[in-house]
Design a protein around this nucleic acid. Structure first.
Lengths: 189, 189
DNA sequence: ATGCGGCGGAACGCAACCGTTACGTCGTAG
DNA sequence: CTACGACGTAACGGTTGCGTTCCGCCGCAT
């Protein structure tokens, strides 16, 4: 019987609040204010801040990412890196992700939740992508998909989270080429 | 005339508190409690939380990192990655760094301070390392030190901050080999 | 027409922290 | 011996947030 429009308003408010002040300073009262609802509406749905945030981010992060399959590993790689860099550069994502990661470092519940959600996507994407490439003979057999994922996502995430430099097409192209080279080289076996 | 032992106690307390609860939830009162000093001692030194944290982390982060120069780029790379991964895996660092990075995403003062301190080290290390290698003919001329740095530090930081998997010697070796491959390939020009 | 349930609003007591102030102690320099 | 200054402690008034409770409103189903 809980009104759905209210639930949606709260979810949006949580995401915005998370982006603005971070998990550490997120308060139920601020969420209620922003959503234009009473605190009661929130406590009727979740029993505290942690539970609320976990439920909401699990839902948001759980959306599927399509794995590229163009027929060429180089193109798959280009495409994947473009998709990821676009996603990471969206305003809300670029604020929330590092914040939650930092929070995960000290809150096992958050850590566990994020790991579960992220690992599924990330790992399966890696295995699928590398698997396709090996099957087509574009990568040496025994290429470690784990390292491949780290090489692909690492620099992008680093660039986003640390130097905070924009990732333009030119940079992306160079980076993709470098990653391709390292994997084709067959060093990651 | 401010007593030095007190200042040191406060600095340590700030670092511990940062690691435990993060910048967002760090309170002056908690720092004072932990350091075993009065709030007055803190306000006598800094006028607020931001100023205090900025001063302290600037100091800590400002320590020089030696740039490897073994005579071989492959060895330089191995050594650098080992040093960095060790540093990143230390308890306090692995908690504080992602937290401050997340905070930097919403606080320009923190962002500016971190960028200044980090960029100097990181950029100069990259340029020096790549420069040496080019001079020795181990890397193609025109190799972009920027991309090189991203390729080297990105996966390490990613691994630390996101999947939070331990970085053992075996993994490090494979990763270094892959990075070496990608740079030698000359794609990053 | 009646009743149920979700709603916003307001207030509750409690706790933590802010930044400031007053006080009394203690070590040291003059 | 005296004076100064940094120290810890305690308290200040004010703010914010917690999680709970009670109220009156309103939409909807019966």
């Amino acid at each position: 019987m809980l009104r759905n429009d209210i639930t949606v308003a709260i979810r949006n408010a949580v995401m915005s609040e998370l982006a603005e002040v971070g998990y550490g300073r997120l308060s139920i009262e601020a969420v209620a204010r922003r959503a234009g609802v009473g605190k009661t509406a929130i406590y009727r749905r979740w029993s505290n801040k942690l539970e609320m945030v976990l439920e909401i981010i699990t839902d948001v992060a759980g959306r599927k990412v399509p794995v590229p399959d163009t027929g060429s590993f180089a193109d798959d790689l280009d495409l994947l890196m473009m998709i990821v860099s676009r996603a990471l550069q969206h305003r809300v994502a670029s604020q929330i992700i590092p914040d939650l990661m930092a929070e995960a470092a000290r809150n096992p519940q958050i850590a566990e939740t994020l790991q579960r959600v992220l690992r599924i996507h990330q790992q399966s994407v890696g295995e699928k992508l590398v698997g396709q490439a090996i099957a087509r003979g574009e990568l040496p057999e025994g290429t470690d998909p784990d390292i491949a994922v780290d090489l692909i996502l690492g620099p992008l995430y680093w660039r986003l989270a640390v130097p905070r430099q924009p990732i333009n097409d030119d940079y992306l192209e160079k980076l993709a080429a470098a990653v391709l080279g390292s994997l084709k080289g067959g060093s990651a076996t």
